[in-house]
């Protein structure tokens, strides 16, 4: 029921032209909740420095990084230990500062079209919970999980039209459909411990929706399940750009090359 995880996550940017000025927001720090306890979590940056930290309007911890002038490589590394508990995906009561209605608003990335509407219409079930489980199944059936098959800026409608995508795309489709069904929904970025390997090349993403009586509940379409103790919740938002691990702006530093190394290991 509980699990001890060690996470080590390195993101490296390489620029052909040196950076003139640049800033990056990092949403890479998981918070301690009643289902995850975070300890020894540290974030370091090479090629830039941590200027300040704050909590955003989704209560994510954000670090602001100023890139070094003339930097050609920026390395962001975070690591720490987390003890997780299985709650069958139930995150619980909404106590964020953001009002629930905010999570019913579609964003640019979840804006609906005929394909999303078609999916939402197929959903059935007696209760909100049943309908959301059914929605997860409907999407899993309609959108095939396929790494490298989608573009990072696809909208939910693009994904539903194309019929394939990665975890980010599954989450966007789920959120768009849930909101179309008038349910508050949000995007979650985090880590997933895999049973068969420790090395990963991307963070994981899933969706949460707010169900009367239960509060927020997670749904991972890509794995067709609600998050359990293998999941670590890092940041939430209305969509990917809102919760993205690294977002930035830069002058100079053209031709960016990005590499990500993630290790999620269970402590023995």
């Amino acid at each position: 029921m509980t699990m001890q995880l060690t996470i080590d996550h390195t993101t490296t940017y390489r620029f052909e032209e040196p950076v003139h000025t640049g800033l990056q927001q990092l949403r890479l720090t998981p918070m301690t909740t009643h289902f995850q306890t975070v300890s020894n979590w540290v974030v370091y940056v090479d090629g830039g420095h941590l200027d300040l930290g704050f909590f955003d309007h989704h209560r994510n911890h954000v670090d602001l990084v100023t890139l070094d002038r003339e930097a050609t490589e920026v390395v962001i590394r975070c690591r720490g230990d987390i003890e997780t508990t299985d709650t069958n995906g139930v995150v619980g009561r909404h106590f964020d500062p953001a009002p629930l209605w905010l999570f019913r608003r579609q964003t640019d990335r979840t804006r609906i079209g005929p394909a999303i509407r078609r999916l939402a219409r197929q959903v059935e079930g007696e209760t909100e919970l049943a309908r959301m489980h059914n929605l997860m199944a409907v999407i899993a059936g309609a959108v095939e999980y396929n790494t490298g098959s989608s573009a990072p800026d696809w909208t939910a409608e693009d994904v539903a039209t194309e019929g394939h995508g990665v975890c980010q795309d599954h989450a966007h489709v789920f959120i768009a459909c849930a909101r179309e069904l008038n349910m508050p929904a949000r995007y979650v970025s985090g880590y997933l411990m895999m049973d068969d390997r420790e090395e990963q090349d991307a963070m994981h993403a899933w969706a949460e929706t707010h169900i009367e009586g239960l509060g927020w509940v997670g749904f991972d379409v890509s794995n067709a399940m609600c998050p359990d103790e293998r999941y670590v919740r890092v940041a939430t938002g209305l969509d990917y750009p809102d919760a993205a691990p690294v977002t930035g702006t830069r002058i100079g530093g053209s031709s960016e090359a990005l590499s990500v190394q993630i290790q999620v290991a269970q402590q023995q």
Partner: peptide, 8 residues
Amino acid sequence: FLPHMIGV
């Protein structure tokens, strides 16, 4: 309404 102001 500016969501970035929530909680400030």
